[in-house]
């Protein structure tokens, strides 16, 4: 199988390899009809990737490099900037707001990622059912929350979560809670509110990803397991879940990176992140330093800090999920 593929690939590439053993003479002759082509020796590939690389260099890499540069300055885009060395980083690590923002970010991330993942896998398992009617309809509407504007979502959810007249507090009232929960001032309640918005927005997207990888699981596995007398739950536990490990890794990493960038939801609830900064996230902290306090250099150093956190988390994610998948195959 792999040998065939290898051979096929070699054949396909051969026109660009002047020293390839088969048919080199005739192809080389042909190549000379286009001056310059021969000398490129397979460097055409660079041309193909150029659009992405150039765009990435301009819009991705250059801003990153520039913000690293800015972070060493007391930066004023319109006035004078002074070089301050590592001062911004020194201050940042001693800024209690940073650790508060880190705590909030992780709390919101955990509250939004894990319940969401469980629900998405459950939903995907339902949609996988071959006897389900209107499958494509459900699969399509799952993406609607994802294309809704965050601002609109925030407006609707803040109505649901209103302290005095919100539906959620009304329901809790019927259930016997006499105390109205303040979903803005409370630390955990505000995190729950934000996590709910994130979950609502992303659950459909993740469901589709899980669904796609569930559909890719070979049916033989289910057939043989049912021959062995496995129940539906056992099939899900011992066939579906282990096969989803790579997808879970993917969703976790993407979710984590997204979770570290939570911005619009808390910003819309209160632009300063709450009276005691109870839902100040890392990106909101960055934004406020840059555009309210006019500390652009400081904000850049926060950006770099966030990058490091993402790197660390990605590494941890990678290690943990690899360990899980190794355990699973045993």
């Amino acid at each position: 199988m792999s040998e065939v593929a290898e051979r096929g690939r070699k054949k396909a590439l051969s026109p660009w390899k002047s020293k390839s053993p088969q048919g080199s003479s005739s192809k080389a002759k042909k190549a000379t009809q286009f001056p310059g082509v021969k000398s490129l020796n397979g460097k055409w590939g660079y041309l193909y990737v150029a659009p992405f690389v150039v765009m990435f260099a301009i819009f991705g890499l250059a801003p990153v490099v520039y913000s690293v540069y800015i972070s060493f300055f007391h930066w004023d885009p319109l006035g004078e900037s002074t070089f301050t060395g590592l001062h911004n980083f020194d201050r940042l690590l001693h800024d209690s707001d940073l650790w508060l923002a880190l705590r909030n970010t992780f709390s919101i991330w955990a509250l939004s990622t894990f319940p969401q993942m469980l629900m998405a896998i459950g939903l995907a398992n339902i949609l996988r059912n071959t006897r389900l009617r209107g499958k494509s309809f459900f699969r399509t509407i799952l993406l609607v929350p994802n294309i809704t504007s965050v601002i609109a979502i925030t407006i609707v959810f803040s109505q649901l979560f209103g302290r005095d007249f919100g539906i959620i507090n009304d329901i809790l009232g019927w259930a016997g809670f006499s105390h109205h929960i303040d979903f803005i001032e409370g630390v955990i309640p505000s995190h729950v509110q934000i996590a709910t918005m994130i979950t609502w927005r992303w659950i459909g997207y993740n469901t589709l990803i899980f669904l796609a990888s569930m559909l890719a699981i070979p049916n033989e596995l289910y057939e043989s397991s049912s021959v062995d007398g496995a129940s539906k739950w056992q099939q899900f536990r011992y066939v579906t879940l282990p096969q989803l490990k790579n997808t879970i890794t993917f969703v976790l990493i993407v979710g984590t990176i997204g979770g570290l960038q939570v911005f619009a939801e808390p910003q819309q609830l209160a632009s300063d992140g709450g009276s005691s900064k109870q839902f100040l996230t890392l990106t909101l902290f960055l934004y406020n330093q840059a555009f309210v306090n006019n500390k652009y250099g400081y904000a850049a150093s926060i950006g770099i800090f966030i990058t490091f956190i993402v790197l660390i988390i990605s590494a941890v994610n990678f290690v943990i999920t690899r360990k899980i998948s190794n355990d699973g195959t045993r």
Partner: peptide, 13 residues
């Protein structure tokens, strides 16, 4: 303004 507003909010809450 923002810092003082938050301070008043903390007292109110």
């Amino acid at each position: 303004d923002q810092a003082i507003g938050a301070g008043l909010g903390r007292v109110a809450a």
